[in-house]
């Protein structure tokens, strides 16, 4: 089993003993003194206009440190990891275009409090027609992004 060459033999990975015994360290395993947790309010609609976001109840909760919505982060520009042609905002306060698009972020003392605060933020949406079929999307009868000429 042992070999002095990387070729022609089986080379067991040196990183595996830690990984198979639960001794590896992933980012979520790192604890920092005084660390806080973030949780996101996400759209339940595939396509909707965001009419209003009420964060007042969440802001008053014990353990909530900060709540961010689109206008708080606009100056930071779009998402850095850009895979689409159309820039995507960090938080969307205008028109959400998929289920799960983030509209607000809560920072709190721990993950449970952050999630509680997410549940206490009330977003009013005006649902818009959604395209949920590839063939339908390819007809361009409804553009996902108004700033583009085609969905394809």
């Amino acid at each position: 089993m042992s070999t002095t060459s990387a070729l022609g033999g089986v080379v067991r990975r040196r990183e595996d003993p830690a990984l198979i015994q639960g001794k590896a360290r992933y980012v979520d395993d790192i604890k920092v003194r005084g660390e806080t947790s973030a949780a996101f309010v996400r759209s339940p609609f595939a396509h909707a206009k965001v009419l209003s976001i009420d964060t007042s109840e969440a802001e008053a909760m014990d353990g909530v440190i900060a709540i961010f919505t689109a206008s708080d982060v606009e100056h930071m520009g779009p998402l850095a990891a850009q895979v689409a042609i159309v820039p995507r905002p960090l938080l969307n306060g205008d028109v959400v275009r998929h289920v799960g698009e983030a509209v607000a972020m809560v920072v709190a003392t721990d993950r449970y409090v952050a999630q509680d605060a997410v549940d206490a933020i009330f977003v009013e949406y005006e649902p818009l027609e959604a395209i949920v079929d590839l063939k339908d999307a390819a007809t361009d009868r409804l553009l996902v992004h108004d700033s583009t000429e085609s969905n394809t």
Binding site: R12, R13, D16, L19, I20, Q21, G22, A24
Partner: peptide, 29 residues
């Protein structure tokens, strides 16, 4: 996973190592 074999390797742990049953290891435990 930390207590499965108490410092030794359980046969399943050994199998994952010997047969390349992992890459990033996140699902492995």
């Amino acid at each position: 996973i930390e207590g499965l074999a108490n410092g030794e390797l359980h046969a399943v742990q050994e199998g994952f190592w010997e047969r390349h049953g992992l890459q990033c290891g996140y699902c492995t435990p």
